[in-house]
Design a protein around this nucleic acid. Structure first.
Length: 305
DNA sequence: TACCCTGGTCATACGCAGAC
DNA sequence: GTCTGCGTATGACCAGGGTA
């Protein structure tokens, strides 16, 4: 079995997880419509915890597949990149697993790894969209899975953001001499903060680099030029850099659209997202939850007796 | 006016080094 | 051994400007 075979099979199995319910955690049904409204406002707090559970359960799920038996084993790396690797073939295939809770305001998972990490296209990104079975309570259910190559995501990110001198994508510095926890492995984005006059000056500097000045490159030579800009002009670190929601990767955009269009308990996921995320519409939220989830006032009365 | 995009902030966590 | 600081990392929400 070759690296790309493992990736292909892994992709197929991960995609087959659509509709799968993880029996790892269960949120109890709220006892009243008011409790349901309150729960709808805080359910996203579960996202990091459930996201992690989904990540390591995905590894178990892959190891349960007979296709891989006798060829190697999937192992979780935490911390480490990617989240799961297949020990048994080289180059080592892996999946970086990102859980997405589509009632959140945006996909907050980031992908900051350098293009340099994907020389053999051996690492893919698997995004798993999940919701509680009953929208705001129940067990986590996978709505859909999107698997795309890590290289394509890194390239989409760099091409989307990099626009010198206005916006710079910088590769990690050489931090090999630092202790492990202080070593940099991620790219970062920087936004120009100087005056218009300084911006024109910076533009002239970029123009002096030649015809490929605007073309992003992770090579040391090109990165050295970018660091010259950072040293001469004011930039700010962009804390939203590389959010999966913002890098305009065609596969991820298509996946987002398909998830938001899914029908889930009487509305599309996108409609639930808008409704539950809106301010001052508690009565509307309450009515929708009562209508589509069957939460009744009488239930609360029975439970309180 | 609703929606989208961008910029910003907050909360939390980890692992290591150095001080005590 | 414990505490604290540092640098890095992740995930969530909110505000404001631009636009259809």
């Amino acid at each position: 079995m070759q690296t790309q075979d493992v990736i292909r099979l892994g992709r197929e199995h991960l995609r087959s997880m659509s509709g799968h319910v993880f029996d790892v955690l269960e949120v109890k049904e709220p006892i009243s419509p008011d409790a349901a409204v309150n729960l709808s406002k805080v359910i996203s707090k579960l996202s990091p915890l459930v996201g992690n559970m989904i990540e390591f359960n995905s590894v178990e799920f892959l190891n349960d597949q007979e296709d891989f038996h006798g060829h190697g084993i999937w192992q979780r790396q935490d911390p480490g990149f990617p989240d799961t690797i297949f020990q048994g073939v080289t180059p080592t295939p892996g999946f970086e697993i990102k859980a997405w809770f589509p009632l959140a305001t945006e996909i907050t998972a980031r992908f900051k790894d350098s293009q340099n990490h994907f020389a053999h296209d051996q690492t893919h990104v698997a995004m798993l969209a999940w919701l509680p079975e009953q929208l705001i309570f129940g067990k986590p259910k996978i709505l859909g899975v999107c698997v795309v190559s890590g290289l394509s995501v890194a390239q989409a990110r760099d091409n989307h953001y990099h626009n010198p001198p206005d916006y710079l994508v910088l590769e990690p510095e050489d931090t090999a001499s630092r202790t492990q926890n202080l070593q940099q492995t991620n790219t970062n984005g920087y936004k120009f903060q100087g005056t218009q006059e300084e911006f024109r000056e910076a533009q002239e500097l970029v123009a002096s680099w030649g015809p490929n000045a605007m073309q992003y490159s992770p090579t040391p030579e090109y990165q050295e030029r970018l660091r010259e800009l950072i040293a001469r002009f004011r930039y700010r670190l962009d804390t939203n850099f590389a959010k999966m929601d913002r890098i305009v990767h065609p596969g991820i955009e298509e996946f987002k659209t398909s998830i938001y269009r899914l029908n889930f308990h009487g509305k599309t996921v996108g409609e639930w997202n808008k409704l539950l995320g809106s301010k001052g519409r508690d009565e509307e939220i309450r009515t929708a939850l009562q209508e589509h989830l069957g939460i009744r006032e009488e239930d609360a009365e029975e439970l309180l007796l």
